[in-house]
Design a binder for these strands. Structure first.
Length: 490
RNA sequence: GGCGCGUUCGUCUAGUGGCCUAGGACGCCGGCCUCUCACGCCGGUAGCACGGGUUCGACUCCCGUACGCGCUACCA
């Protein structure tokens, strides 16, 4: 029996842009694995490519992770702070003959690659600089000729065990003498990852399987340094609807965009957790706590999954309905404010009531603004189809007139008395209650779908309800006037 | 091109040789509930990429083919 191993994992984004869905899921898997094993979840910023790294991106990534609830342990490690460490490791490898200086220029290399391409040969660095005499190397070094450091790939093959894919073997003949240190002294990815994962005492490297092919290179580095290997876990990528790697081409890809679209963080977490991973039982709705309990690398698939926003939308609706209005309050206020609808809702209780009425029929936060604007704004138009079906009867205006009077006299102002009022009117008119309610809803909201009419009227208040009925009556007058004119013209 | 990885309904998935007449979820379609919408409930639609083995028996094991994705940079 193995002793339980201390688990330390890391999420290592490069700060070239926002945190995207794929990155978020990789971070989530790392997070879940760490929390499940009561280990550490660390962050490392891979900013060795100075030209592509941006400080704002780092903050964006932090914000997105926090919004998702993926809190990390310890201070994030910045690779840009560790240049000297990488250079030192390179010196060691140079001294041990595991690496060599290369003075070839970018242009020379490009040319060789081009020739190989034309001759339909596979290109691999030809080791020109490996043949250099020590004296020549020293001379170039002392003159400060720009140079890189290349890893000397040994003969043979590398086999390693991936926790998802199993045994993987790659022939060294397939591996180029890759560059360790760029001519500007910056390390290249493979070197930095290996050194950092070792120094950070990472036990499990959990990352996208786009890194699978490169893993042997890194294993060679571990071996060259005489370091123990971490476990490798290569999770499948997330694909767009066209089955291609999920990217900007697919439109919405950053976590931030999903936040702006009105998705809830726990819904997004739940959804991406299920992309490429499944719990043992057929469970679909899982809180982050549930996910932590259930998470296991065994449940991760080999196959990449397509991101299906429709299912996300459904899941978000499930979360929306399960929330208490208080939990949604801040987010909804933000949305209402951004749509300039907030003034009508100075009262917190009012907004909570609104959330209560709407949350069951809304799938995103955004819809609190787009689907319920009539709660705080008089309708500016009436749904055409609604007009045809509900306002065609001749007595509609008269109905509204009677309703108006009755509403004015309702006391106390509550659901029960409003319902009673409408049902009594229906009885008196010898009509079905619905025959009054539908036209009324249209008058009050401008649309034909809304929360329960009685609750809605309570919410609007006596004054607004009467005002809107009057407005509808005016519209009806105008409409019939127009029809008369048309009739006369004929 | 070379190398690596992958392949169950449109999508997310269950399934580790007989329990599979392949189960669930989203979507879609129909119905019920109902003041509308949404929710909920009931029902339906649709899949083991293909071809060879192995086996008494393959979705499950092996081999090939096809297709897809990834890697192949002084990117990560």
């Amino acid at each position: 029996m193995l002793m339980p191993k201390l688990v330390r994992v890391r999420f290592a984004p490069s700060p070239t842009g926002y945190l995207h869905i794929g990155g978020a899921r990789t971070a989530l898997f790392n997070f879940l694995f760490a929390r499940h094993h009561e280990g550490q979840f660390l962050l490392r910023i891979e900013d060795t490519d100075v030209s592509r790294s941006k400080e704002e991106a780092v903050q964006q990534i932090f914000n997105s992770l926090r919004w998702l609830g993926l809190e990390w342990d310890e201070e994030p490690v910045y690779q840009s702070d560790r240049i000297h460490r990488y250079q030192k490791i390179c010196q060691d490898m140079l001294a041990k003959g595991k690496a060599y200086y290369c003075f070839c220029t970018q242009e020379q290399l490009d040319k060789k690659r081009e020739i190989a391409r034309k001759e339909k040969r596979d290109y691999q660095y030809d080791r020109t600089c490996l043949q250099l005499l020590d004296a020549v190397i020293h001379e170039k070094l002392s003159k400060g000729v720009p140079r890189t450091v290349r890893f000397l790939v040994p003969e043979g093959q590398t086999t390693f065990q991936d926790m998802i894919h199993g045994k993987i073997t790659v022939q060294h003949s397939q591996i180029d003498d890759f560059i360790l240190l760029r001519s500007d002294g910056q390390p290249v990815y493979h070197l930095a990852v290996v050194v950092d994962d070792h120094d950070m005492k990472i036990t499990h490297v959990i990352r996208g399987d786009d890194h699978l092919s490169n893993t042997p290179k890194q294993i060679l580095l571990y071996q060259a340094m005489g370091w123990p290997l971490p476990s490798f876990v290569h999770v499948p990528l997330i694909l767009g609807p066209d089955q291609k790697r999920f990217s900007k081409r697919h439109g919405a890809i950053s976590v931030e965009i999903y936040k702006d679209k009105g998705y809830l963080p726990d819904a997004l977490i739940n959804f991406i957790a299920l992309l490429g991973w499944a719990p043992k039982k057929n469970e679909e709705i899982l809180s982050i706590a549930d996910l932590i309990v259930r998470f296991s690398i065994k449940g991760i698939h080999k196959k990449s999954a397509v991101f299906d926003e429709q299912k996300l939308l459904w899941m978000n609706g499930v979360y929306m309905r399960s929330k208490h209005p208080e939990d949604l309050y801040d987010a909804v206020v933000d949305v209402l404010r951004s749509h300039a609808l907030i003034d009508a809702f100075k009262d917190r209780q009012n907004i909570l009531k609104y959330i209560h009425l709407m949350k069951d029929r809304v799938k995103t936060l955004q819809e609190f603004a787009s689907k319920g604007d009539y709660f705080f704004k008089d309708p500016v138009a009436y749904d055409e189809k609604g007009i045809k079906t509900y306002w065609n009867a001749k007595n509609v205006k008269d109905l509204f007139s009677q309703l108006k009077t009755r509403i004015a006299n309702i006391h106390p102002w509550n659901e029960q008395s409003i319902e009673k009022c409408i049902r009594e009117l229906a009885e008196k008119q010898n009509m079905q209650a619905g025959e009054i309610m539908h036209p009324t809803r249209l008058a009050l909201t401008g649309v034909s779908a809304s929360p329960g009419l009685f609750e809605l009227i309570v919410f609007l208040g006596k004054e607004t309800a009467i005002l809107r009925l009057e407005k509808a009556m005016k519209y009806l007058d105008l409409k019939s006037g127009l029809q008369d004119e048309v009739g006369q013209l004929k």
